[in-house]
Amino acid sequence: MITRNPLARAGQYVALAAYLVFLGFPLLWLLSTSLKSSGEINSLAVNLIPEQFAWGNYPQALDRQNLIRSAGNSLLVSVVTMVVTTLVSMPAAYALARFRGKLRAAGTAWILVSQVFPAILLIIPLFIVLRTLQLNDTMFGLILVYVTFTLPFTLWMLQGYVAAIPRDLEEAGSMDGATRFTVLRLIVFPLLVPGLVATAMFTFVAAWNEFFLALVLIQSPELYTLPLTLRTFIGLEGQTQLGPLAAGAVLATIPSLVIFGLLQRRLTSGSLAGAVKG
């Protein structure tokens, strides 16, 4: 909106600042807590800047409760989920965008339905299915489930990107006698790369952040993903060590934060418009 009134302008800046404090302060506070010694935390003093920077919380967090192993697990699950989801959804997204009719109707319907059903209704039978396939409590099983659950969003985004590629290009390719596969590989795929990268990153973050499915489907502590391990840090009656807990939380946030930093221009430049308009 265009406002030229200086007073309104000032008001806008004040409002913007308020938003930024609200949205950004929690991360700041987490950082601050992660650098406080247990003595300072126990003293109940409330300072944003720690009296003394206790960097030791970070090695301590990494040392405790196999945070590193969990981070490794999370990385493995997220990367493989990202790769598999992207590979699997690419052709399907293309088909959804290019072949109208029943297929498209069914695809869209499923994408919608999958949003409405609560995970709890799925998790019980999913647990049983995985048990039957001997995939319960395995990384592989978790990855398969993550692939399935990230597909709706990925398909939706990708088919938007495909639809934006002019058909003429493909048709021109076909005229030259190339097979559909060649056309896909040589013409569609290169144009799709930026979209693929963005979608893949979203998939990575979704898998990296996921908690509920892992909570039920992974039982062995050595297979815990990062969110599961962080939760065991909190403890109920046990001793809560807030410094290392906060340090672990910061470490768990960094990958997603970096990815969002990379994607931010795309996210805020209005380029998602297509996905919304549907």
Binding site: Y19, P26, L30, N209, A249, A252, T253, S256, F260
Partner: peptide, 21 residues
């Protein structure tokens, strides 16, 4: 625009930990 995206990037478990603090 970068700062405004922070909450989105945080895993729900971390969000819960932060707000408990």
């Amino acid at each position: 625009r970068v700062l405004a995206l922070i909450p989105w990037a945080m895993p729900p478990v971390v969000v819960a930990i932060v707000w408990r603090l």
